[in-house]
Design a binder for these strands. Sequence first.
DNA 1: AGCACGCCGACT
DNA 2: GTCGGCGTGCTC
Length: 730
Amino acid sequence: MSKKIVRVAVQAPLPGLFDYLFPAHMQAEPGCRVLVPFGRGKRVGIVWEFAGQKDDLPYKLKPVAQVIDDTALLDVPLRQLLEWSSNYYHHPIGEAVATALPVNLRQERAVRTHRQRYWALCATCPDAEELDARASRQKIVIQMMKEAGSAVAETQLRELGADIGSVLKRLAQKGWIEDSARYASANAESGESRQKLNLNDEQRDAVTTIVEADGQFAPVLLQGVTGSGKTEVYIQAAQAVIGQGKQVLVLVPEIALTPQLLRRFQAGIDSAVVSMHSGMGDSERERAWNAARSGDARLLVGTRSAVFVPLPELGLIIIDEEHDLSYKQQEGFRYAARDVAVMRAKQSGIPVVLGSATPSLETIYNAIQGRYQRVRLTRRAGGAVPPTLQAVDIRSEHLHGGLSATLIKAVRKCLQAGEQVILFLNRRGYAPQLTCNDCGWIAECEHCDARMTFHASAHRLWCHHCGYQKPQPKVCPACESEELVYLGQGTERLEETLGELFAETPVVRIDRDTTRRKGSLEAHLEKMHMGESGILVGTQMVAKGHDFPNVTLVGILNLDAGLLSPDFRSPEKTAQLMLQVAGRAGRGKKPGHVIIQTRNPEHPLLQELLCGDYDSFAKAELKERQEAVFPPYSYQLLLRAESSSAEKTDDFLEYAADTARELLKNVEIWGPVPAPMERKAGHFRGHLLLQAAERATLHAHVDHWTQQLRKLKTARSVRWSIDIDPQEQL
DNA sequence: AGCACGCCGACT
DNA sequence: GTCGGCGTGCTC
Ligand SMILES: [Zn+2]
Ligand SMILES: [Zn+2]
């Protein structure tokens, strides 16, 4: 009597699948969830495969307790992708699978199948304008349905905001809208009413290249300067693929998934567009996941984790701003969504578009090697000219609140012309340092090797690394002097300075602190979106997401941190950020100007960017990487470790290094070294870097190595993880 | 990781 | 006497 054995992916920090007996009376296919006994309790796992009976089992198997689903939650291509990801990132398959499932489905909960509903307006429904001002949500729903002119998919309506479900319910109760059984085919025809996208010949060529790849793996690097209309290319290509009855996945960086962007996709696509991002609640995410899996959603716009959403008819993947660091998960299962997406396209045999004005050097290298086809968009919409760049040497100048005389003059001129200014400063808060003039005491975090930032509005000192905060001291804690001074500039302080310099001008600050609380910010932003004169102050956030039509001047207050960082990726990241911010300047007929303040005006990176373009920079930087044998000319693995003491961390990493020397051949071992900030949130952190000329060489015996590390008793008190293709050495 | 077992010090 | 500290082993 042969016993059926099933191999299950269970969420546990242990490598591999777990074997169970599969009782004859049960029925399940790979991809279904099952409830299995695990340790002392029970856990939910995914059936991975069935293995015939085995005679010599190393241990007695337990039987599956219960089958939860009758059809597979994860289809074959997605399981194949998860398996590849688990192997490539050396992370347990069960945990990889968990990141691909909505939280509700990681438990024993049944899949909630929402039949796709289509809502139509009834004749009794009043105009949106006639509604009570308080019924703003009902208003936008009615408005959207009116604009559509036919029945609208509920998934589509739900993109209008949170808890649209209750709004629909109320409208239905009033008899203003009805559940329309038929999906009005008018929707497909209403393509006429959709804005006809006017593409230039470069954009048309790009669309053709993407769409012609039909039915086979074809990675395309879409390299287009800011304002060259990459999004129109995405929309047109997506529409074409959707027209063939397929689905499209669009990945965007965390902070770029704004209502603005979503509306553009919805306006250009005549089928259900669904979004998924980290700001969503569990049930919203589950709904989007279900819509994607059932095929109700034809285009999914999502952030990092959306790369693992099931899309049974996937025909195209688009990765916008492919160089963006938020595609890399920085904890646990440290996958890079861009690279996983390319693998997904390869496994599915479909085209994949990597879009960026400033592609990562890895991607440029792939294009140079001929692995990716490069398509360029060189023209800005409306024939706009590229911005002019000017470096201002601030070494010998007395700055006014971080602003040089040159920059202040330029801002004034710009405002007088009724135009907008962006000032970029990559530091939140009021001042990055609080110090005592009498004894030299500096406010430092008790848990990190870092200084605390002063936040004026909160009257508190904040550690940006661990979140620890304390009240603003009145006197020096060391000598009781009252001579406390705030050194350096943060966005909060810059906002204050500008308020004094340009009292008549609205100043809007955009950073993590202002975007948290909405309301007043939204109102200010609205004005800026309309093009009214004003100054925008902000961190990286001003470079991404929001789009302002009337900006002609961009000031970068201090580029030096990026120029001087020892990290080998720093030049690349600095160039990308600088050009992305610079790209905000100038639209239409108005040329843009960019002022860069620096104490290193002769720095080669800066010179390269001032005289050349991103391509010439990339070429020079790739040469540097080649000479130093850094990625993409080599492959890296970073072992990260942290514990309650520097000794424990170091001992563990020393052992890891010894073991690596023994087990891993043709691999260079650097370290162990303490992390750039050794103590963070009370933990002592260290690194061990492995590098090899070939990917296969690097990966060959890693699993054996980690198995050895797991055996080490002292490793119990050390938290450690493997980071493949590390991006940041933080 | 998450849980139980087990072996030692300092409490009622 | 026993409550609880965390070192150690295990999860199909
Ligand atoms: Zn002092
Ligand atoms: Zn801290």
